[in-house]
C-alpha cells in the first residue's frame, strides 16, 4: 500500500488547454514547457518568446496587428443569430447564442469591416474562435459575403482571418449554404481581378476550410496552425490508423501544396502589405 495517497482527483485539463495562455504571473508554455513571465508572452503578440508557439489572439488584437492604427471601421456589428430551427441538445441554441453574446465580446463568431494596411484600403473579416468555436452560421456567412461585396464596390482586396471549427450544426442546412454563398461571392471578386488573401490560423477546419478559407489567391498560415477538412479524431475513427507526425499542421499543408506561405505573426502585416501592393500594382 502506498504511503502517500492523492486525496483529491487530479485537476481536469480544459479541452483547449494547449492554446490558451493561462492566467497568472508566470506561464508554463504548453509547447516547450518553459516557464515564462506572462507579460512577456502578451507583449510578444501571444507568441512564446522561447519556442515561437503561436497562441490564439482576440479579434481586437488581430485587427490592431494587421491594420494601421485607428483605421478600422466595423460593419454589421449588430447582426445576431436566430434559433429558427429551435435546435436543442442539452441547451437550446438560443441559450447558447445568448450566453456567447453575454460574454461581452462579439455578437457572433466574426468581426468584419474596412481598414488600411500601410495606407492601402482593404476589407477584412476576422473570426472570433471564442464565440461558439468560431462556427459559421447565417450571420458569419452573411457578414463575409457583404464584406466581399463591399470589396467589389470599392475595388479593394479582401482578407479573411479564419479560426473556426466549421459550419454551425445548430443552423443545419443554412450553415451548409453559407459555404456556397461565400464561395459564389469570391467567384465575383476573382472575375473582377481583386485579390483575396486567406489567413489560416489555429484551428481552421470543416466547412470553413472547404469553402472560402482554401480559395485565397494567397493562402497564408500561421506556424503550426491546425488546418484540415475532417477533424483528426474523425479520421482516426474512420480509418483506424494512427495519424502521421505533424498531420494537418500548417507545415504539413505547405509540404502538400495547400498553402502558399507560413508567416510568423510579427511579420504578418509587412508580408501582407508587400503581397497586396504587388498584386494591386502599387509602388
Amino acid at each position: 500500500m502506498a504511503w502517500f495517497k492523492r486525496s483529491n482527483p487530479p485537476m481536469p485539463k480544459g479541452p483547449d488547454h494547449k492554446s490558451r495562455v493561462p492566467e497568472g504571473l508566470w506561464t508554463k508554455c504548453t509547447s516547450c514547457g518553459e516557464t515564462i513571465y506572462t507579460k512577456d508572452i502578451e507583449k510578444n503578440l501571444n507568441v512564446c518568446p522561447k519556442c515561437n508557439h503561436h497562441y490564439r489572439i482576440s479579434t481586437k488584437k488581430r485587427l490592431e496587428l494587421l491594420l494601421d492604427e485607428g483605421s478600422f471601421v466595423e460593419f454589421d456589428a449588430g447582426m445576431v443569430s436566430v434559433d429558427f430551427l429551435e435546435f436543442k441538445d442539452s441547451k437550446s441554441y438560443q441559450d447558447r447564442i445568448n450566453q456567447a453574446v453575454a460574454k461581452g465580446g462579439s455578437k457572433d463568431a466574426i468581426v468584419c469591416g474596412q481598414g488600411n494596411i500601410e495606407g492601402m484600403p482593404v476589407e477584412i473579416s476576422v473570426f472570433d474562435f471564442s464565440f461558439m468555436g468560431g462556427s459559421m452560421g447565417s450571420v458569419v456567412g452573411e457578414k463575409i459575403t457583404r464584406g466581399i461585396e463591399r470589396a467589389l464596390e470599392r475595388k479593394t482586396p479582401m482578407i479573411i482571418v479564419s479560426a473556426s471549427g466549421g459550419a454551425r450544426m445548430q443552423e443545419s442546412i443554412l450553415s451548409l449554404m453559407q459555404m456556397a454563398k461565400t464561395s459564389a461571392a469570391l467567384a465575383k471578386l476573382r472575375e473582377a481581378g481583386l485579390p483575396f488573401v486567406s489567413i489560416l490560423t489555429d484551428p481552421t477546419t470543416g466547412g470553413v476550410t472547404a469553402s472560402f478559407a482554401m480559395l485565397g489567391d494567397i493562402n497564408m498560415a500561421e506556424p503550426k496552425a491546425l488546418i484540415g477538412f475532417a477533424g483528426p479524431r474523425v479520421i482516426e475513427q474512420t480509418i483506424r490508423q494512427k495519424l502521421p507526425e505533424g498531420f494537418q499542421r500548417a507545415e504539413y499543408l505547405l509540404d502538400h501544396g495547400m498553402v502558399d506561405v507560413i508567416v510568423d505573426r510579427a511579420q504578418m502585416k509587412a508580408q501582407l502589405s508587400s503581397i497586396l501592393k504587388m498584386l494591386m500594382r502599387q509602388a
Binding site: 459555404m179 456556397a180 464561395s183 459564389a184 469570391l186 467567384a187 465575383k188 476573382r190 472575375e191 476550410t209 472547404a210 469553402s211 472560402f212 478559407a213 482554401m214 480559395l215 484540415g228 477538412f229 475532417a230 474523425v234 479520421i235 474512420t238 480509418i239 490508423q241 495519424l243 502521421p244 498531420f247 494537418q248 502538400h256 501544396g257 495547400m258
Partner: peptide, 23 residues
C-alpha cells in the same frame, strides 16, 4: 475523411467546385 484525402486537398477540391459552379 482519410489521410490521402486531406493530403490531396479535400477541402480545396470542394471549395473550388463551389466557386466554379457559381459561375
Amino acid at each position: 475523411p482519410g489521410i490521402g484525402a486531406e493530403e490531396r486537398g479535400q477541402a480545396e477540391a470542394i471549395a473550388r467546385n463551389l466557386r466554379e459552379m457559381a459561375r
